[in-house]
Amino acid sequence: MIRMRNVTFRAGDFTVRDVSLDVPSSEYFALLGPNGSGKTLLVNCLCGLIRAERGTIEVNGRDVTRAEPRLRRIGYVPQDYGLFPHMNVARNVTFPLRARGAPHAAALRDVRGVIETLSLERLLGRDTVTLSGGERQKVALARALAVRPDLLLLDEPVSALDGPTRAEVLEELRHVQREFAVTTIHVCHSTDEARAVADRAGIMIDGCLVQTGPLDAMMRAPANEAVARLLQAGT
């Protein structure tokens, strides 16, 4: 269960104001909003890369508002996947366990389940710079899931992929989320993308979370004109 209450912070000239949000355990939640609405900033605040100035963040009942990123048990997949170019696929995937002191071989045994679920076996020895967009996305996802986080944050995970790959990856994301039963927040700016994966969605506009709920319900009763425009825009 993720619980945010009145989370407020500034990043440069931009302010994210009074965000309150509940995401039940194992839910796939989409965070929708136009470019520059503060979605990525909010995700960065959730995983501890931006300090919340006000408000509280709880993950499974633990208050992590002031906790260091490494102690939050939150897996984060950034928009560009953020693979480490000086490590091969196996070392990228085992990185979170090695960071916690596990030797590479033992870490590789521990993440075997994640590797098999994402069909990464044949890629383990590959250099990350030789991977396709879809493969990079899978490796980043496996790395984020390696320590079985309480919350998975996906920041526009398919924005760099072409049409057919995008549909395939969205399906896989949904499958992986169900398989690991991990609470997931998926940032996107497309209603169709949100509809393809999420149980519920939240709409961010100008640094405020203006509405949350099932997409169909929000389409029927948008909170304001900006939300209605965003939901009707589709892709």
């Binding site: 990123p69 490494r70 939150i74 950034p78 990185f95 960071a99 916690r100 984020a144």
Partner: peptide, 13 residues
């Protein structure tokens, strides 16, 4: 620098 930040979320000090 974002890769270092990412490493923090992955368990690094």
């Amino acid at each position: 620098r974002r890769l270092e930040h990412l490493a923090l979320t992955l368990g690094c000090t």
